[in-house]
Simulated assay, not measured.
Amino acid sequence: MNELLKKALSLGVGVTLLTKEKIESAVDELVKKGELAPAESKELVRRLVEKGEAGQEEWKQLLREQLKSLLAELQIATKEDIEALSRRIEKLENPTS
């Protein structure tokens, strides 16, 4: 499951990079057509990329919430559950400690 999460997040990063390239290409085209001043192009790219990154963060948060809900629904033990059980076993095996 952890590997699936890593792949999903990597996909989101890849989409952001691809989107940045497309944004830069579209803005360059606007500059070539004279619809945008070259001095304004970098700022426009920066603003659009920032908006895309903000959207990506929202997407990541939504994905985390969905995965957390799914794991709870499937009743899969969390790291904290396993650590608590390990401590309990340690106490049972070594009652004098």
Rank of each mutant, 00 (worst) to 15 (best):
M1K: 04
M1H: 09
M1V: 09
M1Y: 10
L5H: 11
L5T: 13
K7W: 03
A8K: 14
L9N: 13
L11M: 07
V13F: 07
V13N: 11
T16S: 12
L17T: 10
L18N: 12
T19S: 11
E21V: 15
E21M: 08
K22V: 07
V27I: 14
V27T: 11
D28M: 09
D28T: 06
E29F: 11
L30K: 15
L30W: 01
L30H: 09
V31G: 13
V31H: 04
K32M: 11
K32W: 03
K33H: 12
K33E: 15
G34N: 09
L36P: 02
A37I: 01
A39N: 11
A39H: 12
S41P: 04
L44R: 11
V45C: 07
L48E: 09
V49N: 03
G52T: 03
G52D: 09
E53V: 12
A54V: 00
E57S: 13
E57G: 02
E58G: 06
W59S: 13
Q61D: 09
Q61H: 06
L63E: 02
R64M: 04
E65F: 01
Q66E: 15
L67R: 14
L67P: 01
L67S: 06
K68S: 10
L70T: 07
L70Q: 06
L70W: 12
L71N: 09
L71H: 08
A72Y: 02
A72S: 15
L74C: 05
Q75E: 15
Q75I: 03
I76N: 04
I76M: 07
T78A: 03
K79W: 01
K79I: 14
E80T: 13
I82T: 11
E83K: 12
A84H: 03
L85S: 08
L85K: 13
S86T: 08
S86K: 14
S86Y: 07
R87P: 01
R87T: 03
R88C: 10
R88D: 15
E90I: 01
E90M: 07
E90G: 07
K91V: 04
K91Y: 04
L92H: 04
L92A: 15
L92M: 13
N94T: 11
P95T: 14
S97R: 12
S97K: 14
S97M: 12
